[in-house]
Simulated scan of single mutants.
Amino acid sequence: MILDETKGTMSGIKSSLPIVMGYLPIGFAYGLLGVKSGFSVLQVFALSLFVYAGSAQFIAITLLSSGTNVITLIMTIFIVNLRHFLYSTSLSQYMKRIKRNYIPLLSFFITDETYAVAITDLQNSDNYDERYFYQLFFMSYAAWCTASFIGAISGTFIDGSANVGLDFALPAMYIALLLMQISGYKKIFVSIFSGLLSIGLIYVFPGNTNVIIASLIGAGMGVFLDRWKQNS
């Protein structure tokens, strides 16, 4: 939780700094890979501007470069991003004080990373308004688009493989965001259980369905443990 000392409200700009630092190498890797996969700098940059979903963008350039049809592409990205329904549901309880006309715009900027930071801040403070969301979301969005553009430009000058050793960046950032939210034995247990369940479901369900199912079961277990603790 980071408060704006001048206004007494949480500073979305300061809260966005971990995301910005994580987005720089990942966005660069995406832009580089996009150009190396045969797309123009403009196409790669436009995908960041209008889609703004890291995993979906990596999938999109991989599938499109291999000649996958549009229907398959749309269905794949839809399944991968189903987790955003969970994010929106979780954040909706904190949007009640936000004017309705802001919500459709703000919803576009919900990602794994912005959700993780926002939910951690919001659970620990009620000193926020729409400025917090705009600052957090726009700073993260700007960092992603800028890194993508720089990566794409760099891709036009770098010869050979697009693999520049940045494969670790995405999972490393997810681990860091998870650790930010873990406090207490219950959250540790649910996190480990959900992770192991997701790994086990890889061998049962195709694509990224395992992540959705493990998330739902893990969330259900968290609710059950909360109620069990309240009733005990």
Rank of each mutant, 00 (worst) to 15 (best):
L33V: 14
V211H: 01
V211I: 15
G8P: 04
Q93A: 13
A118P: 08
F133M: 11
G207D: 04
Y203T: 05
T89Y: 05
F28S: 10
A60T: 06
N208L: 15
L196D: 00
A176E: 00
N69Q: 10
I217S: 02
F189N: 04
G38I: 06
K96S: 12
M75K: 07
S55K: 07
F224T: 12
G22P: 03
L47E: 03
V117E: 01
L82W: 04
N69S: 12
Y102L: 09
G151P: 08
A176Y: 03
R83F: 08
Q93V: 15
I59F: 08
V35D: 06
G22H: 01
S48Y: 11
Y203Q: 00
L201R: 05
R131N: 12
F109Y: 10
V80Y: 02
K229I: 15
P18K: 01
S66W: 05
V80T: 15
D159F: 13
V70I: 13
I175R: 01
L3I: 14
S194T: 07
L47P: 02
V204Y: 02
L42I: 15
P25V: 11
T9E: 14
G22Y: 01
I13K: 11
V117F: 00
N81Y: 01
D226P: 09
L201H: 09
F193I: 13
E5G: 10
I79G: 11
G31T: 07
T146F: 08
V70A: 12
L179K: 02
N101F: 10
A29W: 01
M75R: 07
K187G: 00
D121F: 02
A53C: 11
Y87Q: 01
W144G: 12
M180S: 11
S90A: 13
F28K: 08
S15I: 08
S215A: 14
Q43P: 09
R100V: 15
D159T: 15
G200Q: 13
S140M: 02
V80P: 06
G218N: 04
S40C: 10
L105Y: 11
N127K: 14
G38E: 03
R131G: 13
L47Y: 01
S232I: 13
Y115E: 03
V204P: 02
T62H: 09
S191T: 03
G218M: 08
V80D: 07
N101T: 14
S198A: 15
G207T: 02
I13Y: 13
S183L: 05
